[in-house]
Amino acid sequence: MLVFSASDKGGTGRSVTSVNIAYQLSMDGLKVAYLDFDFGSPTVGAIFEISRIDRGTPDDDGLHSYLLGDTAPAGRLSVRSETDRTELRHSRHPSGRLVLFPGDRGGGEFANIDEATVRRCTELLVTCEQEFDVTLVDLSAGRSIALMLALRSTGMPQLSAAVVRWLVFHRWTRQHIVAANGLVHGPHGLLETGAACRHDPELLLESIRYVRTAVPELNEPAGLRPAQAAWLQEQNATLNRAATRYQLGTTVVLGETPVEPMLQWREQVILDADVSARIANEKTVLAFRKLAAGLTNPAIWERLGE
């Protein structure tokens, strides 16, 4: 399964949520690859707390170099073997794997892509499909070259049999709802660009689900004045109506994550040890687990697509 994480805006929690989904999948015993396609800002290594690649690999063997044809094969590393965090190294499933394909430090966004770049990307995705149960590809925000590259590669015959899913992340605000709609349905968006890359727009639409991030907990209005609590309830109802109007209603939502103070201060993998220490909230971990379970459950996707 190939899963592409996209967002129209930065600051949606796309990367940190995707990293936590990948971690939860590996804890379920799956072999998981994580590809950092945020070429201009490859910081997934920092989220996994691998300090030597916190801004991408300095070894000129990252995904940017690979796609340019400067190195082969693409560099990879085991997250649990390389992380600086002891608890993450020791937190594992006997059958699970979590492998990071980092970007290059200072690689930068591509100005354009040619057929050779598409071929190398397709070959990489085919390799990951054969070796891993789930491959998560973290794309740059917006209508980026990374998004175009993903669409062109998955439109190639070599990947015609692959299960491909798209997660579009947005915060629970009107501006982010509008932006997410534009990324999918707007000019040069996912559907329009996908059609130009030999995708069936209807099938592509069925493969897209939304993840709402940093959604406030309405049942815990601690510290709010009555007027504030009432306003929050009203805004939530308004946002639900807007989501439906902009084609982001509940039938196409895979899940949501709550506001998590720990992640507001530090983007990282949240472990059970963080919950036990009462640093992180259990509901956040449960949200990540629900997203991971939903991602790999065909019945849920079939039901959402009805």
Score class of each variant (00 low, 15 high):
L151V: 10
L77A: 11
G103N: 09
P58F: 05
A277T: 06
L218D: 15
D54N: 01
S140L: 04
W265D: 14
G189A: 02
L149T: 13
A6E: 13
N20D: 12
L30A: 00
P157Q: 01
E220S: 13
R174P: 08
V118Q: 02
T284F: 09
V126S: 10
R120I: 09
K31I: 07
N20Y: 12
R245S: 11
S144F: 10
E49V: 02
G142E: 09
R303Q: 12
G75H: 03
P298D: 14
A74Y: 09
V16M: 08
G96P: 13
L25W: 09
E282C: 04
Q228T: 08
P157H: 01
P221F: 09
V19A: 06
R85M: 10
V285G: 04
R209T: 11
L35I: 06
L204G: 00
L224K: 11
R174S: 13
P221S: 14
R278L: 02
A230L: 01
P73V: 05
F39D: 04
F39Q: 06
A222S: 08
D274W: 00
P42N: 05
F110P: 14
T86P: 12
F110K: 02
A141H: 14
V215Q: 13
R152S: 12
E115A: 06
S276Q: 11
N112Y: 08
E206D: 15
I208C: 01
T135Q: 02
R80K: 07
L35K: 01
L149Y: 14
N281F: 11
R165W: 13
D70G: 06
L30R: 01
D8F: 03
G45W: 00
V253D: 05
R52E: 05
P157C: 05
R52Y: 04
F169Y: 06
T57M: 04
A196V: 05
E220C: 08
E217H: 10
G62D: 05
D59A: 02
A277D: 15
V178K: 11
M262L: 11
A162M: 03
R97V: 10
V211Y: 03
Q247P: 05
F132W: 07
T154W: 10
D60Y: 03
S78V: 07
R241V: 10
K31T: 02
A33L: 03
I50G: 00
P221C: 13
R241F: 11
D138W: 01
R165I: 06
S41Q: 13
P261K: 01
P261L: 10
E267I: 00
G155A: 11
C197L: 08
A227N: 14
D70W: 11
R80Y: 08
R212H: 15
P201M: 03
L286R: 15
P298C: 00
L136Y: 06
T154G: 08
A180Y: 03
D104W: 07
